[in-house]
């Protein structure tokens, strides 16, 4: 990618971040909450898309990393009374280590086997949450007490029950994730990642350790998804087994396909459309997950490049 194209993408990301920052001053309370959730789910989907969009690996088990972050942070706070920043850092580290272990095994498979293996590992994760019900309270889950959601940082107090504080933390995490991916993809490592995605055999025969390149992205992806889960658990104060379920592995796939796999801002766009839609539908019917099925099939049949993928193809070839 040329320097000019990279600069355009950087400006675009900064512009989107500026808009998101200013939203907190205009949105009504209910929508601030919704936007906070969306930004965290977008971080989750960004991590998923790092793997699918840039090295071409479709994981069906990313709920494992989201749930790992969620429980690693939440349980240390709940059971051991850890401080919020320490719990968050610990959770991101734990997710990265888990991704390293899972990746080292799962990346020995390709394509369909990779999808099934990741799905099964995530299933093991979901069962683990249920099995250790003494710690996790199983299906019902745990609520973090309000007292545990206030952190004294010395210079300031962080009150996670405050809506705007939560908004800005989620915003900070999203901004950091976008910038990390922007820099990574603009670097030589990003070029190697997409080379692996486009033609694995060729890339190996140019002297690159393809396995290491995939594993590196797998760990980045797992850590980012784990960070999203950790923030989700701490900001909303609830840890439930649902977050480890198959549905939470499918949602980032859905967001990414809708927004456009392999586009930096695609997952965010996908979240914006889907989360709003799902929330509206859930007020109308209990069978609101029907929409997940319909949208998946419509996308895969008629719109496989997604929103930003199509925009890139038709109008803006420089989008990354």
């Amino acid at each position: 990618m040329s320097r000019a194209a990279f600069a355009r993408n950087a400006w675009l990301v900064l512009a989107v971040l500026a808009v998101l920052f200013s939203l907190q001053f205009v949105l009504p309370d209910y929508q601030v909450l919704m936007a906070t959730r969306m930004m965290l789910l977008a971080v989750f989907a960004l991590g998923f898309n790092a793997l699918l969009g840039y090295v071409g690996l479709l994981s069906l088990g990313h709920a494992l990393f989201f749930a790992c972050g969620l429980y690693a942070s939440g349980l240390t706070v709940y059971h051991f009374g850890w401080g919020l920043p320490a719990a968050f850092v610990f959770a991101v580290g734990a997710s990265a280590v888990l991704a390293l272990l899972i990746g080292a095994v799962a990346l020995r498979t390709i394509r369909v086997s990779f999808m099934i293996v990741t799905l099964m590992f995530a299933q093991v994760g979901a069962l683990t949450v249920l099995y250790f019900a003494a710690w996790t309270n199983g299906q019902e889950g745990l609520s973090l007490p309000a007292s545990a959601r206030v952190a004294d940082l010395g210079v300031a107090t962080l009150d996670l029950t405050d809506a705007l504080t939560r908004y800005n933390i989620a915003y900070g995490l999203l901004a950091a994730s976008l910038l990390i991916l922007l820099v990574y993809l603009g670097s030589a490592r990003g070029r190697i990642a997409t080379a692996v995605r486009d033609n694995e055999g060729r890339t190996e025969m140019l002297g690159f350790n393809v396995f290491a390149a995939k594993l590196e992205m797998f760990v980045l992806s797992g850590a980012m998804s784990g960070a999203a889960g950790a923030a989700y658990g701490l900001l909303f104060g609830y840890l439930g087994a649902t977050f480890a379920s198959f549905q939470y592995s499918i949602e980032p796939l859905l967001f990414t396909l809708l927004g456009g796999a392999g586009t930096l801002l695609g997952p965010l766009v996908g979240v914006l459309f889907m989360v709003g839609l799902i929330d509206k539908l859930s007020e109308l019917t209990t069978a609101y997950l029907l929409v997940i099925g319909v949208v998946l099939i419509v996308l895969i049949l008629w719109f496989p490049k997604g929103i930003l993928g199509t925009v890139r193809e038709r109008w803006l070839p420089w989008l990354m």
Binding site: L60, L253, G293, V294, L296, I300
Partner: peptide, 18 residues
């Protein structure tokens, strides 16, 4: 293979929710 898996996941939700 990848596309059909995604499609059958879609089918899963459609059948179950219907």
């Amino acid at each position: 293979p990848e596309a059909t898996i995604v499609a059958t996941i879609g089918l899963l939700y459609i059948l179950q929710q219907t």
